[in-house]
Simulated scan of single mutants.
Amino acid sequence: MFVLGSHSKKRPHNIVIGRMFDFQLYDALELGVEEYKAIRDFGAAGTGAQLGNKPCVIFVGQKFESVPALALAKSLLLDMFRGEPVDKINLAGIDRVLMAVAVDDDRLQLRQYSVRFKKSGTRIPRVALTEMGPRIAFSVRRFRLPPTDLQKEALKQPRLGKKKEKNVGSDTLDGKVGRIYMPKQNMDTLGLSKYKGTKRERRESKREAAEAKKRPKTAAAAAEAAGGGSDAE
């Protein structure tokens, strides 16, 4: 982001606020200073503000949503004054209020107030605002919106975090822990590795089964076979 101040006969008291992306001009807004009153002109009103505290930024007027130049001004002013993004903020750290007022389509006023927390008889303090400056009245001049392709590229968000793995968790002792679901298995038909000893036992059992088939199945069959032999003699 950049802010450039210039002064010429054609554009007196000129301020250009813009942003860069990937070494290219992303957008820019040209404002003319019509009225200015410095902080020192407000006396000791601004002595309570501390460097590094985040201001409360307020935009007054629907034109900040409908007029393209003022919508751009809102985006630029937020980027300029909000500071570093934070998740939480202490109420005591809000010591000033920055207010932007859209007077009409091409005029903008900027005011800044110091915040004082006073006793109210309850747990919630009473808030008192005192103008601390600077007080600026701008006239909106030229502006440039970001190109569509460049805006699309600048608004890309990286994917943060790892992709969630199904049935995988973590343990403080074992580290990565997985869960496996197995179907019911029949141990009788389960194919296992065969050892030489089991192969020898199978060969012997097959040989015994073959010999048993050759033998008579019943005692009657054996006697009949024996009787038939004596008649033949």
Rank of each mutant, 00 (worst) to 15 (best):
K184A: 07
E208F: 13
G197V: 03
M187R: 14
P147F: 12
G178V: 06
K163R: 04
P183A: 04
V177K: 03
R179H: 09
Y195D: 08
K152G: 09
M182L: 12
A209I: 04
G175M: 02
F143E: 02
K162M: 07
G178Y: 01
K194T: 11
K199L: 11
Y195H: 10
T198I: 09
R202G: 12
P158F: 04
L173N: 10
G175K: 02
Q185L: 14
K164W: 05
T148L: 14
Q151G: 03
P158R: 01
A209W: 07
R207E: 06
L173W: 05
N167S: 02
R159F: 06
N186Q: 12
K164R: 08
G175R: 05
K206I: 07
G197H: 09
P146I: 00
L190M: 13
I180Y: 05
Y181G: 02
E211V: 11
D149K: 13
V177T: 00
E208H: 09
G161W: 02
S205V: 11
Y195P: 09
F143G: 08
E201P: 06
E201V: 11
L190Q: 10
L190C: 15
P158A: 02
E201G: 11
K196F: 10
F143S: 05
R202L: 12
E208R: 15
K166T: 15
K199V: 10
R142W: 07
S193C: 01
P183Y: 00
Q185W: 02
L190W: 01
K156C: 03
K206R: 15
K199E: 05
K164T: 14
E153Y: 02
N167P: 00
R144F: 07
V177N: 00
D188P: 06
S205W: 07
E208L: 13
G175H: 00
P147M: 04
G191Q: 14
R179G: 02
G178D: 04
G191L: 15
K196Q: 10
Q185E: 08
M187H: 09
V168G: 00
K199P: 10
G161V: 04
R144G: 12
Y181Q: 12
K213D: 06
D174H: 14
E211I: 13
K163G: 02
A209T: 03
E201K: 14
R207I: 06
N186G: 11
E153R: 13
T172N: 08
E201C: 12
K196L: 15
G191T: 09
K213C: 03
E204G: 04
G178E: 11
G191A: 08
S205D: 10
G191V: 06
S205F: 07
